[in-house]
Amino acid sequence: MAPLGTLILCSLASAVWSYPSGAPPEACDSMAPSTAARPMGHGGPPQTRPSEFDVAINVDANGWMPDTEYTISITKKNSSYDDIEGFLCQVRSSASDNTRHGSFVNLPKFYKNAPCNTALIGSATHTVALYNASASMTWRSPAASLPLPWPGSLTAYCTIVQHTSIYWVKVPSNSFQLNPSSIVTSPPPTDDAAKVTAGSAIVLALAVLHKTFL
């Protein structure tokens, strides 16, 4: 049996190198708990084997609509797998694009918005070690008032912690496209409008010529 002092030291190390209260700000871009500042942030490198969890979002085949709420869920692929201890979820255009789209709203107890720079509502994480078989959260898509171009294809990415040193980084959901019907373009001018526009142009041109030859 290991000496009591050794057990206490190991317990303290686990507390220092893991994040039971959620992802730290320095993990926001990489979504990895092990960073240059904390190379052993979660006790070791991420898993390279396939994730034991699925990430999904309930956007239908028609695509996402602006300013609409959707549910992002994390579930175990097999009930025999160990539970979720923690997570960090974001919605991006791609895994390499650090821009976070939309916002996480109405988060349940033990969840919070991760402090990711100025995008305080663009990431969701845990506040305690969860030990849950699944996790779900509400994501609101970007508002229609945003300047164009809107992001087209989006994907939910979640870093999922199963144990202190067992975690997967940027597990993707299915990609989902912008619903074409949400793109509003200016209608072409009617014949009457075109005539008015052409007439105004002619009047303006005549006025310029008249002023030139005075």
Results as ranks from 00 to 15, higher is better:
Thr155Phe: 06
Phe176Ser: 01
Thr190Val: 02
Thr197Arg: 06
Ile183Ser: 06
Ser153Cys: 06
Tyr157Ile: 00
Thr159Asn: 01
Cys158Asp: 00
Ser182Pro: 07
Ser145Leu: 03
Leu146Gln: 13
Ser182Met: 02
Ile183Asp: 05
Val196His: 08
Pro147Phe: 15
Ser165Met: 11
Ile183Arg: 15
Ala193Lys: 10
Gln177Arg: 14
Arg140Pro: 02
Pro187Ile: 10
Trp168Met: 10
Pro172Met: 12
Ser153Val: 10
Ala198Trp: 09
Ser181Gly: 12
Asp192Thr: 14
Ala156Met: 09
Gly152Trp: 03
Val169Cys: 04
Trp150Ser: 10
Val171Gln: 05
His163Gln: 15
Thr155Ile: 11
Pro151Val: 00
Gly199Val: 14
Ser165Gly: 07
Ser186Asn: 14
Phe176Gln: 00
His163Ile: 14
Ser165Ala: 13
Lys170Thr: 06
Trp150Tyr: 15
Ser153Tyr: 05
Thr190Arg: 03
Thr164Val: 12
Gly199Ser: 13
Ala194Met: 13
Thr197Trp: 02
Leu178Met: 15
Thr155His: 06
Val171His: 07
Leu148Arg: 02
Thr185Arg: 10
Asn179Glu: 13
Gln162Trp: 05
Trp168Ala: 11
Ala201Thr: 03
Gly152Leu: 05
Asn174Thr: 14
Ala193Met: 02
Tyr157Met: 01
Gly199His: 08
Ala198Gly: 11
Lys170Asn: 10
Met137Phe: 06
Ser182Arg: 04
Thr197Asp: 12
Ser141Cys: 05
Ser182Gln: 07
Ala143Met: 04
Thr155Ala: 00
Ser186Gln: 12
Ser153Pro: 00
Pro188Phe: 12
Gly199Pro: 07
Ser182Ala: 06
Pro147Gly: 14
Gln162Cys: 02
Pro172Asn: 12
Ser141Lys: 07
Trp168Arg: 05
Ala144Met: 02
Thr185Ser: 05
Leu148Cys: 07
Val161Tyr: 01
Pro180Lys: 11
Asp191Glu: 03
Ala201Trp: 05
Ser173Met: 14
Ser175Pro: 01
Thr185Asn: 08
Tyr167Leu: 04
Gly199Tyr: 11
Val161Met: 09
Leu148Asn: 03
Val196Ser: 06
Ile166Lys: 08
Leu148His: 07
Leu148Val: 06
Pro189Ala: 03
Ala193Ser: 01
Ala156Glu: 11
Pro189Leu: 11
Leu178Val: 15
Ser186Pro: 03
Pro180Leu: 09
Ala143Ser: 09
Cys158His: 01
